[in-house]
Simulated assay, not measured.
Amino acid sequence: MATRTRRSQRRTEALSRQRIVEAAVQLLDAAGEGGLTFRALTERLATGPGAIYWHVANKSELLDAAADAVVAAAVALKPAEPPGAPPGEIRAVALGLFDAIDEHPWLATQLAMQLSRSPWGSVTTRIFESIGQRVRALGVPDGNLFTATSALVHYILGAVGQNAANTRVDGLHVDRGEFLDAVSTAWEELDPDDYPFTRAVVDQVREHDDREQFLAGIDFVLTGITALHLPSGQACTPPAA
């Protein structure tokens, strides 16, 4: 009996929650949310369902844990990477989330769901804390911190979510260049009298870089925060290239 207990403990320790979450992320990356089943997970980990249920109660908890693990890695800044000033760190965190959702397309849906259904959860609070600390470091008054941070977070999640959606159709990856070319070609055929602006920016749509456009949006929001809430003379200028 003692031997059986020790073996069970060793199996539980070997099959850690971290290993389960890592395997879940791999399944989500390969086949999306539909591909994450406990049966697929047990096959990947070469274990029984009971060992997995020891660590996670259900698929919902597993999705939350997978999203949290990816987000935690995305917002963790390495000391030598970003510029020390808060604007540079905000851009680095935002770009980390952009790249994470680009690499893990399923994450966009999970973030949107968690932001609306459980804003008290670890994923939402982790993102708000990471951005909010740096907004405070900018010198934004306490009474405006929530609004300024919310504007940044909503822009980040909305933009990266849209970018992820534009790279996949019916769950299949779409070449970004081909997608932009198709959009531009369709816009070129619009009536110039009804859509003068849309026709005028066709070439910009076809040739733009998603990451550069995303960071430009961050700069727009930071410039607005500077103008509204920071003492005159302070600016959130982009770091030198």
Rank of each mutant, 00 (worst) to 15 (best):
A2N: 12
R4I: 12
R6C: 02
S8C: 04
Q9M: 12
R10H: 12
T12V: 11
E13K: 14
A14W: 11
L15V: 12
I20G: 03
E22W: 04
A23K: 04
L28R: 02
G32T: 08
G34W: 00
G35V: 04
L36Q: 00
F38C: 05
R39F: 02
L45R: 10
A46K: 14
I52C: 08
Y53Q: 07
W54I: 01
A57Y: 01
A57I: 06
S60Y: 07
E61F: 02
L63M: 09
D64Q: 13
D64S: 13
A69I: 04
A69K: 11
A76Y: 05
A76P: 01
A76I: 01
L77N: 02
L77E: 08
K78H: 14
E81W: 07
P82H: 05
P82S: 09
G84E: 14
G88R: 01
A94G: 15
L95G: 06
G96W: 06
F98P: 02
A100T: 07
I101M: 15
D102Q: 11
E103V: 05
E103Q: 13
P105W: 02
L107W: 04
L107D: 03
A108Y: 00
T109L: 12
Q110M: 15
M113H: 12
Q114S: 10
L115W: 10
S116N: 10
R117Y: 09
V123K: 00
V123A: 09
V123Y: 03
T125M: 15
A137R: 14
L138G: 05
G139I: 07
G139P: 02
N144D: 15
N144L: 09
L145I: 11
L145P: 01
F146R: 14
A148P: 00
A148C: 13
A151Y: 07
Y155V: 00
Y155A: 06
L157N: 06
L157W: 03
V160K: 02
T167N: 12
R168T: 11
V169S: 11
D170L: 12
G171N: 05
G171L: 03
H173W: 02
H173Q: 10
V174A: 13
R176T: 11
E178N: 08
E178L: 12
A182S: 13
V183T: 10
E188T: 07
L190F: 11
Y195K: 07
Y195D: 07
T198H: 06
V201H: 09
V202Y: 01
Q204A: 15
Q204N: 12
D210A: 15
Q213K: 10
L215R: 10
L215C: 11
I218T: 03
F220H: 14
A227T: 09
A227G: 10
A227S: 10
Q234F: 09
Q234L: 11
T237S: 14
P239K: 06
A240C: 02
A241K: 13
A241W: 08
